[in-house]
């Protein structure tokens, strides 16, 4: 960038023989010293395009971290795999969902559950960055203010892609099949990832607001727990008591699970798909600005 005064050819302000004299001149008056005047400082704006470049730099950094700590990825997948095994083989027999085999009912739900749990890692990751001071470094750089969060959520999205694909493989191994064609199946995965990405911004806000990564872990799971379990992820909401049903029917995770299920297995798609997208965008529209504001505030 030509406006950046830290251009490669001028490492630092040139020291002239007059500098010592300038040093002793009072500067409290606010008048620029002669040395200052020699190299006028141009105001530096963060160009629009910067957010993208900066976000990619940060995303790359986070992806390297994920790749170098594969054990974290393993832990992230063990949990949904356990859920698959538990519900497929332990509880599944006693859960009755009409018109569909339980494994075909379960796996779309698990896919949604996986992306939602995956989104909580945004909170933990950001909180770790706060604790070890690297966020302070980022904040002191002339970079885009939103890029740290954008880069983090993008990296977590990429991570989610991996985990979801793995869950499809695991699901297939325990008997799940796509019954509605290739394109809807791809759309289903996209929809789940969209919800996960938008939720990442909620967790970004949480991660920036809690004092340490342990709290981030807890604070991340608290809102997620009721949302995932009072939903159609594992069973039909019709079996729930009325007051719970009222909540369970409309909340985003039920909508997403239903949409993914309809897309992969057949059935009416439009309403749930629309609601899932609306929910996702609404969450993004509310929480992304809040998270960025929180980040700016420090």
């Amino acid at each position: 960038m030509s406006v950046t005064p830290t251009s490669p050819t001028s490492p630092t302000t040139p020291t002239s023989p007059t500098t010592p004299a300038a040093s002793t001149a009072p500067t409290a008056s606010g008048a620029p010293s002669p040395a200052d005047a020699m190299t006028p400082i141009q105001s530096v704006r963060v160009p629009r395009s910067a957010i993208f470049v900066d976000a990619m730099v940060i995303a790359k950094r986070n992806l390297i971290r994920i790749a170098r700590t594969p054990q974290l990825l393993v832990f992230a997948t063990i949990q949904p795999v356990m859920f698959v095994l538990l519900f497929r083989y332990v509880f599944g027999g006693s859960i009755n969902v009409p018109g569909i085999s339980y494994v075909d009912y379960l796996i779309p739900g698990i896919i949604v559950q996986t992306v939602v749990f995956g989104a909580t890692s945004t909170a933990v990751g950001l909180s770790q960055d706060m604790s070890n001071g690297i966020i302070d470094r980022f904040r002191s750089l002339p970079m885009s203010r939103s890029a740290v969060l954008a880069g983090r959520t993008i990296a977590d999205l990429v991570r989610n892609v991996f985990v979801v694909l793995l869950m499809v493989v695991v699901g297939t191994a325990v008997g799940f099949r796509f019954h509605n064609g290739f394109i809807p199946a791809v759309v289903a995965i996209f929809v789940a990832l969209l919800l996960g990405y938008c939720l990442s911004w909620v967790f970004a806000l949480i991660g920036l607001s809690v004092p340490d990564p342990e709290s981030a872990q807890l604070a991340g799971f608290l809102p997620i727990f009721p949302l995932v379990f009072a939903s159609s992820v594992f069973t039909s909401v019709k079996s729930m008591p009325g007051w719970l049903q009222a909540f369970a029917k409309v909340q985003p995770i039920t909508r997403a699970a239903n949409a993914v299920r309809a897309l992969t297995e057949g059935g009416p798609i439009a309403t749930d798909l629309t609601w899932t997208i609306l929910w996702s965008l609404a969450i993004l529209a509310v929480f992304a600005p809040l998270a960025v504001r929180r980040y700016r505030k420090g």
């Binding site: 950046t4 005064p5 830290t6 400082i41 141009q42 105001s43 530096v44 704006r45 963060v46 950094r61 971290r65 070890n132 001071g133 690297i134 302070d136 470094r137 002191s140 750089l141 002339p142």
Partner: peptide, 17 residues
Amino acid sequence: NTVRSLIGLAGQYAAVD
């Protein structure tokens, strides 16, 4: 932002990844 482009900061605790 202009200030950030002029300064380098090395904090009390090493802020590296």
